[in-house]
Design a protein around this nucleic acid. Structure first.
Lengths: 337, 337
DNA sequence: CTTTACTTTGGGAACGCTCCCAAAGTTGGG
DNA sequence: CCCAACTTTGGGAGCGTTCCCAAAGTAAAG
């Protein structure tokens, strides 16, 4: 079924010149006669010639392809981030191979494998909630392939990272709840292993401390981000002898699920219990009540991470310092608080 | 920065055997001594050897990579579909290069170019709302690279396609509205060029005809799917001298926007005006009122399209008939109708 | 009219792998 | 003990490019 691919040789033969000249004409090398170049370009077009990335990659040892691994794909956060990454990659003439690890460490390792085999020139990655062994990523470093972390980063590796002001955002959210008169503010957090969760928790604690709201450890719960488990923790909160009057959720999907569950019980939001999320997903403005949340510049994060990767690919300097870019967050107040 | 890549030659030299034997050991060729194979495998592992896809691709003329082009990425439909496609691709040992055309014909052409250069073994595509020249896709056929259309298909090309029962779904939706006592049922459709819109419109017409509801052409409007324009058409409907009592929208994002706009006017949904969407996006159950819609098996569509592509890649038969797979739809009744 | 310099071209090696064919080694039946 | 048959290995060609070096052609300068 696969037809013969037009090669520079075909063009050379047809024109009675050498493959070298054709190659030069095609790549825009200066030392080729203008007439020759025109003839080559015209024939190439006519024969629907496509350069073969395999042989070029083999010669140049560069694929002009970047890889991106995200933990999931089903909510809007990562797809949107990928849009940003792809935009920037395309501008720079790079392609993007996308894969999702499905929040599974094993899948992440296998995806990284694939990226390696496909000779990506660099890797963008946000780790799974399970990942705490980074051998598969250190392998990239050993092979000299640049990596950039975004969103969920690995603290023990010295590579560029893009994160947002998690702590400041969480702080603003909790301070806002306090300003609304809430005093028993619960925090439904994610896995303690994720630094993103640590930072948001820190913001929560700082805000409580600043306003002399006593910290009650019954009100702090970590879970594994599996949405169907939100039910367990919301129930737990609601059945405490002293019920919380607000819940600061680790992200929007969690908050949305919490709202759904609480509405079922007949409690009023935000009067009886206020809810705040994190990330300002697309859905958050549409639900009832609309969700107060901390906005983060998602697309921007994708663009920035890609830019950091391109920077690394371009400069071959060994003593290049790995920057950590921190993007701004912003509290969006809606009706759930 | 880029270090020397371990090659089969390095392994061969170290072990004092030939590259051929190493190659055989690595690819699982039967005629190689078990001891030799073990030694090779062990050393390969130790040297962190990775097969070089460029040279393999060059030899085998296959990249084991599929391409997928979708018109947009910001709503949940296409990302979810991609999950399905990627699942199936991975199972079959294929990689997926994803790109979005951003509803722009030009971007679609350029994306197709890139896929070609990157030597994808096959292409999955859902065209933009603008696409009506298919030269860039016919090029794939000429090169012998299989294509499969899904969701938004091209009628003039004879290749496998995956669609859903659009007409039946639309019929069920409109019949449901009639059963609810609605008589002035509007249809906010998409571009007439998309066959998906034609089919849904056909379902709408058939349902009206079956129940002797007269068709009023004032109630049928086509738009270009740019969400910010929904406002124009909703206003148009609301200001008709005889206001519609229901709107069947071409998809969920359109319906959700319509609900938002109608709620602002103070009209009651569904009492004054009922709304139905199409696709059952993730959001649709969360909004207020929750959206009645026609569910389509999104992930399944991704899987099926990929399967059809793999089928084409495997069989080299020229007289292979291009099947059109039609997946089931199902009306989900919620509170907006 | 020769020398120098510059422009344009051709040929070959290399990239890392697979695959084919031949060679070497091993076993066993006559 | 020889030849056939089978197992295991090595060497070389080739995939489609790029890149380097040398060769040829052309123009300018002495």
């Amino acid at each position: 079924m696969k037809k013969h691919q037009t090669t520079i040789f075909d063009i050379a033969k047809e024109l009675g010149i050498s493959k070298s000249t054709v190659s030069r004409a095609l790549t825009g090398h200066p030392s080729v006669h203008e007439q020759t170049r025109d003839k080559v370009l015209k024939l190439a077009n006519q024969l629907e010639y496509q350069r073969n990335m395999f042989s070029i990659g083999l010669m140049k040892k560069a694929s002009h392809t970047l890889g991106i691994i995200v933990p999931e794909f089903s909510r809007s956060f990562f797809p949107q981030l990928i849009i940003g990454a792809q935009e920037r990659a395309k501008e720079a003439g790079y392609n993007l191979i996308i894969s999702q690890s499905d929040e599974s460490y094993e899948t992440e390792v296998s995806n990284a494998q694939v990226m390696l085999t496909h000779q990506v020139d660099g890797l963008l990655i946000s780790i799974t909630r399970e990942t705490n062994n980074f051998e598969h990523l250190k392998l990239f470093q050993r092979k000299g392939i640049p990596i950039v972390f975004f969103n969920r980063v690995c603290d023990e590796m010295i590579v560029p990272k893009v994160i947002v002001e998690d702590q400041e955002g969480a702080f603003a959210a909790v301070e806002h709840l306090i300003a609304r008169g809430k005093r028993r503010i619960a925090h439904l957090s994610g896995p303690e292993s994720l630094s993103i969760c640590k930072r948001r928790k820190a913001g929560y604690m700082t805000a409580l401390a600043k306003h002399q709201v006593p910290f009650d450890e019954d009100l702090l719960v970590h879970y594994d981000l599996a949405i169907n488990k939100v039910k367990i923790y919301v129930n737990y909160f609601l059945n405490l002898k002293e019920r919380p009057d607000a819940i600061f959720c680790i992200n929007d999907p969690t908050a949305i699920e919490a709202i759904r569950l609480i509405k079922e019980t007949g409690l009023r939001i935000p009067e009886d219990i206020a809810i705040i999320g994190f990330s300002n997903d697309f859905v958050s403005s549409l639900i009832e009540p609309s969700l107060t949340t901390v906005e983060q510049p998602i697309k921007e994060m994708g663009r920035t991470a890609t830019q950091l990767l391109l920077d690394q690919i371009d400069r071959d300097v060994a003593d290049w310092k790995a920057p950590t870019v921190v993007l701004k967050t912003k509290l969006i107040v809606r009706n759930s608080s």
